[in-house]
Amino acid sequence: MKTFTVREVDFSYSPIIPIFQGLTIDFDSRTTALVGQNGAGKTTLVKLMKGLLKPDKGELLVDGKSISEQTAAQLAKRMGLVFQNPNDQVFKTNVLDEVMFGPLNIGFSKREAEKQAMNALRKVALESKVAENPYDLSLSERKLIALASILAMDTEMVIFDEPTMGQDFAGKEKIKAIIQELKAEGKLVICILHDMDFAAEVFERTIVLNQGKVILDDETREVFSEKEVLEKAFLEQPSVSQIAHALGFEKSFIHEAELIQFLKDVQRLNPDLS
């Protein structure tokens, strides 16, 4: 079983403002959503995990082995990170080159790399854009190109930093399918999200980060039933729960279908009540 352990990690960008102090999290094979207020430290955490930043103290372990001796490039064979801002990630002038860059670096042959790249582009439905310049695409397309360029590397661990940012319905469905597929392949999937509906619907486990500390870490359904804690952390419950509460029901929900079924039952049982 794949695991990633963050143990007692301290980190700060500038000495006076610590971001993490003794942060400990165990990631396992459950698909995990990482949520939290703006500036909570989510991006910083995944950059540490990816080796782009180095902790001041503490350890990061893959399957129990420390990664401190490895460079970010060596780590790339095992772990992919899709950046929050696609403009920080995309640097080639041609979509295919961009997506092939990773696979080529970690030892795929040119032919394999191209196959991987086309496959990944198909998953985000952008195979028709292979010849375009990423700068001439819309922002959401660029985000999907960034995502494909990580998928193409076929790493055991994949971290997404706000993948649904700017995506329409179809885009979110694609990302959902990709996450399910990675899960089925036995990969470790971690996803930073501000979209509570998406987090509730797709992930098995949810972690709430608040000012550099984990304040909730549990099965997704449990986490999203903690209304007060979520609100204190500047988050909210999924829309379905909000609707249920507005209608005067105590129960929390995470899927649309669940709430519809529940309301239908209520309608059937009390035809004259709401």
Binding site: G51, L52, T71, A73, D88, Q89, F101, I106, I150
Partner: peptide
């Protein structure tokens, strides 16, 4: 950062 996070050795 973009390059090393996709496997190109820069360090």
């Amino acid at each position: 950062d973009a390059q090393r996070s996709r496997g190109m050795e820069t360090e």
